[in-house]
Nucleic acid binder design. Structure first.
Lengths: 205, 205
DNA sequence: CATGATGGTGTTCCTTTGACACTATGTCAA
DNA sequence: TTGACATAGTGTCAAAGGAACACCATCATG
């Protein structure tokens, strides 16, 4: 009656203007996963796997869903526990070799069960954008409000009004000024902000 | 590397003015559960277990969370997949013997891990009350708005304004009039309503 | 027919949300 | 030096949504 349990991760990051998911190269490319040994805590195991894959520690990870009897095609049966994680724009060196960042707005092949996980994860991300500070784990330590708005727009898939966006974000007090500025190109420099509670995603309302 | 997988159910119902959870009598009373055989779909298996326990078929059930390495005390290790389900006020005969309805507002003993599941489930129920039609699976086929409000108040734990409640519910159009009335005691009879989409919990906004 | 018990109904105010356009400050090139 | 360009930053108004609030209606019963 014992069963193979697999942990599967949908790891997101926003890079070069696109929401991307981390894929593992292999026989068929797919979401990174590992067999769960059973002698550890599931959530801790997933977090450790995330850290091993990306080099990031203590970043956002959340359990998504558990599936029984995945992949009806293959003979393999078992239980898959899917997680979804968010990491800041990665310096390329931090990600382990054999992994790459796949933009979500392109079309590419992914096994059906993994596509289901991925869609569930992106849906969750989009939903939480509206009632939590879920975007912050995707940001670098310091960022401008313009950059934050860009991330919201990339995930949400629609343009936002700048004034309303800033009003809302500042009233929610997710973020605070660092006092420093970023001078970027040939234009007015922008104030830099940071998360008020780094590593903590807060729910609103 | 294979692991025992257990399915655990937190089944709620509102009866006699209290939110109650279905417990199984045993060495220590607790949430009903069953080993997952691995040759079935997890969600289907949980639904079948629910049906076997309560006699209700096709009622509301939702996956809650999966835990690894439960019960650090006992030697037993494994994965537990917890579900939460809602059933209408049960005619007592439908529930299998060895089971009983425990009111949540009393204090009683429950193993720690199961208490965690139960608190997660009640929290989810309370949250969803605000943005979905989650209360309907708890109602009988026909019900009055007063009865529906009572269920909201029992779950939410606070009194609601009658006029605002009715305005909101009717504008959301979860429910529709049956045209029939219930004459109950020595007072004005109440209109009966039914779910517009029985068996379907809708998310709002 | 008076009492008691629950059913049913609208308005007002306040807060929140969404639409909308112009000035500020820096770099760069002519 | 100054004009062009690019992004940063700022306030108002109207509409919608949510919360507070009190009275009449209808039935059974004694």
């Amino acid at each position: 009656m014992d069963i193979a349990v697999t942990t599967e991760l949908a790891i997101f990051s926003v890079q070069d203007g696109a929401l991307r998911v981390l894929l593992e190269t292999g026989a068929t490319d797919g979401l990174p996963k590992a067999p769960f040994p059973g002698d550890a805590d599931l959530d801790r195991f997933a977090a450790a796997l995330l850290s091993r894959l990306t080099g990031f520690d203590g970043v956002y990870i959340e359990q998504l869903y558990s599936f029984g009897r995945r992949s009806q095609n293959t003979a393999m049966t078992g239980v898959t526990v899917a997680y979804f994680a968010l990491i800041p724009p990665a310096v390329s060196s931090t990600v382990r070799s054999g992994l790459y960042w796949q933009p979500l707005n392109e079309n590419w092949h992914l096994p059906n069960e993994q596509r289901e996980v991925l869609e569930l994860a992106t849906q969750r991300l989009r939903d939480k954008l509206g009632y939590s500070s879920i975007a912050l784990p995707l940001m670098p330590e310091e960022f401008t409000l313009g950059h934050l708005q860009e991330v919201y727009e990339i995930i949400g898939g629609e343009a936002l009004d700048k004034r309303n966006f800033r009003k809302r974000i500042l009233s929610l007090a997710y973020v605070e000024e660092t006092g420093r500025q970023r001078r970027n190109g040939s234009h007015r420099p922008a104030m830099l902000y940071r998360a008020r509670n780094p590593g903590r995603v807060e729910i609103l309302r």
